[in-house]
Design a binder for these strands. Sequence first.
DNA 1: GTCTATAGGATGATAGAC
DNA 2: GTCTATCATCCTATAGAC
Lengths: 189, 189
Amino acid sequence: MKTISRKDEIVKVAATLFRKRGYSAITMRDIASEMDIKAASLYNHISGKQEILADIILEVAQEFTTGMNQVISQQSSTLKKLENLIELHIDITLNHSEALASLNNDWMHLEGDNLNAFINMRDEYEDNFRELIKIGIEVNEIRSAHPEVILFSILSTLRTLHLWYEKRGKLDVNVLKKDMVSVLLKGIM
Amino acid sequence: MKTISRKDEIVKVAATLFRKRGYSAITMRDIASEMDIKAASLYNHISGKQEILADIILEVAQEFTTGMNQVISQQSSTLKKLENLIELHIDITLNHSEALASLNNDWMHLEGDNLNAFINMRDEYEDNFRELIKIGIEVNEIRSAHPEVILFSILSTLRTLHLWYEKRGKLDVNVLKKDMVSVLLKGIM
DNA sequence: GTCTATAGGATGATAGAC
DNA sequence: GTCTATCATCCTATAGAC
């Protein structure tokens, strides 16, 4: 029974616009115009432009944090956990493809507590990912070579998935997961 | 005998600011302030903000185009060519790390002919990369699997190299090249 | 090559009517 | 929940003095 509030609608429209031209280039008038109302009317539902950005970014960041915590608490091999992380990124990309552009490119325009919350979640996520790879090397599930380069390579690919998904059109989720796991993990085993 | 003109100085300062907060968020006053002059003085050297952005992005895009043309005209194996492309990205990243942020995130703010020129170069670059991978699969130098996913994975990593390089601090060029080639190509051979 | 002054318009946000 | 009207500020860019 999920009713879409007017605020949700604003955030969704804004995310689509932010993806194309970025937070700073989009005006409150742009967002309002896309909804066929006037800019002043937006303020009946949100406190300002900053709240929209925080809503877009922090919700997805929270999903990544929750997903990561689930994965690392599992009783399974490192490779299986990495596989689950790849699938986590794909699932979130399909469900929030507009928001990921803001998360990647506009997070620095968050202010105050919003900015701190985001940076903390992102750093923690990266640390967990790094630790996972290091453990994988220790237990010989991953070839002992360049852990930092492996981390960077996998994360770069996963973080820009939304660009590719947007461009290549809708692909079958399960095929996509299988292919990504194959290409990203075959080289490091 | 390369003298740095006042214009070059403006472009360089702007690129550093654009990297941190994006083209749209940076004002002419910000750029001028960073140079300890007034915004109006900038217009004695450049025609406007747009020219600065075009200067930053198109110079690097041209370097990628030139580099790609050299690589594909070589008489060597596909894997050797891919290796050279990885080294090309690393060399350009080290020489123009500030410009790469604008190239990745602010190219859509180019206007008119500048925008067309950029899109043409980028598409051609991608097509060449794609063709190289397909040929590699045909001649059995690359494992016949998911050419599109391989292309995306390698390109994503190379295109975000500047983020990593900025964060990890200065690394030895040759070590970096060796590690990147190893991690990016081991999985597809 | 830089300055002051300013044009001309856009921007985020508020007040108050309906 | 949306509107009109408006404020105070900021923006790119130009004109003309030094």
